[in-house]
Amino acid sequence: MNFSLTPAELLELYRSVLRLRLVEEALAERYQEQEMRCPVHLCVGQEAVPAGVCLALKKTDTVYSNHRAHGHYLAKGGDLNAFVAELYGKATGCTGGYGGSMHLIDLAAGFMGCTPIVGGTVPLAVGSAWAHALRKNGNVAVSFFGDGCFEEGVTHESMNFSALKKLPLLFVCENNQYSVYTPLKDRQPDRPIHRVAEAHGWKAWSADGNDAVEAFGIARQALKAAREGGGPQFLEFFTYRWREHCGPNYDDHLSYRSEEEFKRWKERCPVKLLEKRLTESKVLDPQKIQKIKSEIDREIEAAFKFALSSPPPVTEDLRRKVYAD
């Protein structure tokens, strides 16, 4: 497909994909120090979808996400310093240590929150889209989730209501084919997920989730339709998680997936694919790549420095934190 991205958009896209990769790899490396004491679900191998979809969003569009949220948070514009500090449980973290990796939030960036109960935030995105519709503000709400979430009843309840109300809503299903160690074929019948969304009355799309250009292009088309009153749009992207479900390591020694399968997906690395494509079309060259990479590296280094030098939160009377005034 030809999505006619401008060179500036392509560069922006590359920077975003690479940034997600470098942040996650830095986390994986530092995680071994046992100072980030909360679960982490890294998106290494899956960077193209968050980068592509979020680049197509406006700042005022709203995003809800799940346990594997780092990419969504960062690509939507979530603050990097507050993110890293959150993983270290510091007072300067985006929730001051109350949430951790699975409860990220940056309201200024339109990242409304993420939670690890699978399906938990799906209807919240519906509510967010409902609010946009009531206010007629032209914004779209987005829910990022995985293939496992498609098995939750709440997802289908949400699709039914959103289609009924023709809400300005985007569901982005990152189908990485595994729920922890359990393959899709043991959980769902052999039928395309996005076709079920069609049966709910949604416009549905499916695409290569390792191709950031495709993710961006399809998201842009779907968002246009959603903004123009076309109702909810369902995007299914096929992708693959490289590292373990939860944690910084590779887990292929557990043999729950074949080496051959892993190798095949690794060859389709979202960063390398985009790099190759943009180099061939002369948008990128080795010098530019190096420049972008070192800028991101500096940003990451600064974020870790910020996080590590930040004070820990002070334990208050936690009962006073439960209710809003």
């Binding site: 809800y64 209807p123 509510g127 949400s158 039914n160």
Partner: peptide
């Protein structure tokens, strides 16, 4: 509303978080 108590509760939480 549809007979979808869980999603509708979530949708209303989403509305509440958006200021309704």
């Amino acid at each position: 509303m549809p007979l979808s108590e869980n999603a509708m509760t979530g949708a209303l939480i989403g509305l509440a978080l958006a200021g309704f």
